[in-house]
Design a protein around this nucleic acid. Sequence first.
DNA 1: ATCCATTTGTGAAGCGACTGGACAAACTCG
DNA 2: CGAGTTTGTCCAGTCGCTTCACAAATGGAT
Lengths: 414, 414
Amino acid sequence: MSPRGQAPDTARPTTLGRALMLVHTGYGVRSELTDRLGLTRTATGTVLRDLEHLRLVRTIPGPRPERGGTGRPSHRVEIHPDAPVALGVQVHYESVALLDVGLGGVAGQIVEHRLPRPATPEAVLGLVADLVAARLATASKRCVGLGLALPSAVAGNGTALAALHLNWPVGVPVASITGDLLAARGHRIPVLVGNDANLAALAEHRHGAGAGASDLLYVTTGQCGVGGGLVLDGRLHTGSAGYALEVGHIPVRPGGRPCHCGSLGCLDVEADPSALLAEAGLPTPEPIMPAARALVAASASDPAARAAVLAVTRRLAAGLASLVNVFNPDRVVLGGLHADLLAVAAAELRDEVARRSYLDQAARVPIVAGRLAQPGLLGAAEVALQPLLDDPRTVLRQDRSAHHPEYRPQGTSS
Amino acid sequence: MSPRGQAPDTARPTTLGRALMLVHTGYGVRSELTDRLGLTRTATGTVLRDLEHLRLVRTIPGPRPERGGTGRPSHRVEIHPDAPVALGVQVHYESVALLDVGLGGVAGQIVEHRLPRPATPEAVLGLVADLVAARLATASKRCVGLGLALPSAVAGNGTALAALHLNWPVGVPVASITGDLLAARGHRIPVLVGNDANLAALAEHRHGAGAGASDLLYVTTGQCGVGGGLVLDGRLHTGSAGYALEVGHIPVRPGGRPCHCGSLGCLDVEADPSALLAEAGLPTPEPIMPAARALVAASASDPAARAAVLAVTRRLAAGLASLVNVFNPDRVVLGGLHADLLAVAAAELRDEVARRSYLDQAARVPIVAGRLAQPGLLGAAEVALQPLLDDPRTVLRQDRSAHHPEYRPQGTSS
DNA sequence: ATCCATTTGTGAAGCGACTGGACAAACTCG
DNA sequence: CGAGTTTGTCCAGTCGCTTCACAAATGGAT
């Protein structure tokens, strides 16, 4: 049960895992790894040798292209080309996207497919299983798991709690259904499910605009509604039941639009694409995002569009201020349409958040746009990679023993 | 720098510390310690032997008073009578309270003193230093630190960011000032400062109604304004700058009372004692709490009082629902006057929170009253004990060397 | 009372992760 | 070219934990 020589109270990463995580998140200089791990050079050496034996990492002793300091140059460490990958899947309102992501965040080709209609759980997850199976059949690298990003609150056990906009019933056990469908197609891989905004937050923290933040708040809006995520100490904060950061129902406009939750003026209905279009007096087409983006772009010249953008930006700012006052993040990353709003109304957004912040310190929180094209997909893959990043040895041992029962990965002593 | 044979990345408790924490929080059966630590009986044995040598713990092999199961009965483990204590100080609006708290949460006698007028930082902290020095001079047990609970947001370095109601300027370096004042009186102990509601949350988690919760949300109101705290995985979440859980400015009533933050209808001005009295059309006396408590008590028979209580309860519920939706706690503990409201209007409060909760799961969060008489005071002592609970060996080693003249206490941390 | 099943504490041996010291390797700078 | 600096590796420990074996302490069945 317990790994070995380690206390297993809170599942926390092995040193091997921490080292792999550092390489995964872009630290490629060996001496830097030594510093960040807080180990001696000797210990870092054995850790890297182990990771190399596991074919997760390789070190290049060759000289670095350009360096400043004196002394012997440090080796470069990079993800091994044979290292396993994870699959990320995102269920949107109209489509399903699939992407294979390796350690280091290197992504393959996105496959996208329209949602079947009606988009029942069975139909959607059947499609997901088909796409995944097809990808696995042709994959050259081992796949350690599947991550699934849903536009819904998701419980810790992989159950969709409120995929309202997909018209799913409450409590669809997505993880187990998908696992069964994959098993029926001959693939047995772990399936992890999460809220898309949560997962996007994780991805931005690992590989994007949130890198290095210790308390990262992420807020985004996609098709409809507003989602959020919080990354604390490098771990996604999902709350006790998995529905943390359901930020859509923060009141941001007294007497505003009615929300399906029963209140008026929730963030969900005041700062999403349809709210922006409505503010400009425009109809809401399908799909909605291009129209909303066009409106934001038009705001550079069109005063009416500008007014709508500013109105929505103000309400977004009110919601952000509430969250900043409560979470005290050291960085705020905006995704989806909110990143577009930030691009055209950064000053207004930051001023309004600062004005509504309780403390001077809160007013100085950096608010930046996300840097990733597909943060939800990447985050989904990221959670599938998580066990590997926590404890590479155990994951690979299990993985190998499925194929070669007698295989024994060599320990440190030769 | 690093302890020894352990990775020092995120400061996390030693196994010795984890064991001490368990005894500290009331686990007194040795076999239970073995289970909770996730260690073998052998390892638990050596850990306890070490703690015993440090005179932090003692084990009583004698038979337990009453047991059910078969087999050899397990030893009892309890805090050693010689174990060190910590001092907790709480600055209220009209008084300062001081309490010495030992491991296990055993508290001594509270000393209370009226605030000097004007209550400048120098005057207040001078009084604190006098009280602490007097207590240290007569103390029989070693004191590992002083915790200071303030009605203000507090930065990680022990600086009061917004002691508005004390009329303090922004940015009083409370920890360092108090440390210097104590040093001038011949006492060199670490001083840690925190927000009173934050610290109360920690105390309720360790020794009160929040015990065992993995994601504990605490909300309270004292003299004026509403405070909160969040305990995640047994650690106080203070945010990156220390002002997390400033919950007072969540909007709970569109068009409500004006708040000093500039908005209308903030939780701070809608769910504190003066809001309750105002709702009932009563004046706000000094001190305010007895009057507010009397009003809550009167609500059993007086319809007008009842109406005021229900109005404030509804607004509190609105704030709680917002917080529950974003934090997804597995328990909510109410302190101060909010606990009184819960006592007389539990059904109404819970129903309203459930109604405003986004998810069914959120609606089922247990909402309970705090159990501690002086949670802020206890929590202050708790953070002063924290280094001991994280790494008993190092703290006691430093403590021994404190008799050497060149010892320098750290200002603060966490 | 006696034996048995069960649970708990303890000693011996060993392993894995890490440290510290010593040394060789690789680079910059003068 | 050598001096100074930084880096990787070998060797001998240490520390925290495990496994195995056994003794101690109970309740229950006989």
